[in-house]
């Protein structure tokens, strides 16, 4: 039980780091760390449940989210020379406060909707909900297009966590499909980012409001 809590705390911590990191490189690193913690969580669940399917899912997670996607993203950052500031709308101090507020909110909400759940499950749901919300917050508060991708991936991590911790994982095929989906999604979004960069010579989505008809 202690291990599980430790891992969950790690995930939440990394999400907070994501919320305040200023540079794209740092964001990607934090995301990789978060996914790594998620991998360990899943591995732990798999060992506890002795289920071959969850093992497979865990290693899939390792290969896709810890290795492939972060590498893809950092390649992208290098290619379009978007190193440097991720461009925050909200300064880090305020960001951390908001993140904390969101965590508190998800705590309230979880207690409300599942008051009889056991503690471990409850914690998992609180944290995954918080991760999802903070992911959405990241998407709102950053200017560069890549941070929107990262925000989306963070949200997905949150959803994955809630699924695997509450119900012992989604059906196997669905899990596989989602991984594939995410992977394709990142590739497509990456292509979009390239394209945006090519057309506008920057990836600042904030400046795209001129496109409005």
């Amino acid at each position: 039980m202690e291990i599980m809590q430790l891992l969950l705390t790690g995930i939440l911590f990394m999400t907070f780091v994501l919320a305040i990191s200023k540079r794209l490189g740092a964001m990607i690193g934090a995301f990789r760390a978060q996914s790594l913690f998620l991998f360990f969580t899943t591995l732990y669940l798999a060992m506890k449940g002795r289920d071959i399917e969850i093992y497979i899912v865990a290693f899939l997670l390792l290969s896709v989210k810890v290795i492939a996607i972060p590498r893809l993203l950092s390649r992208m950052v290098k290619r379009i020379k978007a190193e440097g500031a991720a461009g925050l709308f909200v300064n880090p101090t305020l960001s951390i406060f908001i993140a904390m507020f969101l965590t508190y909110l998800s705590y309230l909400f979880t207690r409300r909707i599942m008051p009889f759940a056991d503690r471990a499950q409850g914690e998992a749901v609180i944290i995954s909900l918080a991760v999802t919300l903070i992911g959405l917050f990241i998407m709102v508060s950053r200017m560069k297009a890549i941070s929107q991708i990262v925000g989306l991936l963070v949200m997905e991590n949150g959803l994955f966590l809630v699924a695997s911790s509450v119900s012992g994982g989604m059906p196997f095929f669905v899990e596989i499909a989602i991984f594939f989906d995410i992977f394709v999604c990142v590739i497509i979004l990456g292509m979009f980012v390239y394209k945006i960069n090519k057309v506008f010579t920057h990836i600042d989505v904030n400046k795209m409001r001129e496109l409005k008809g």
Partner: peptide, 25 residues
């Protein structure tokens, strides 16, 4: 309401979600 800013659109989703969560709790 249609400013063309992606952030605003995501913010709409975000606010709606928060409102729902607050409403539910």
């Amino acid at each position: 309401a249609q400013s063309g800013s992606i952030h605003l659109y995501i913010a709409y989703i975000f606010i709606t979600m928060l409102a729902l969560i607050i409403f539910m709790s």
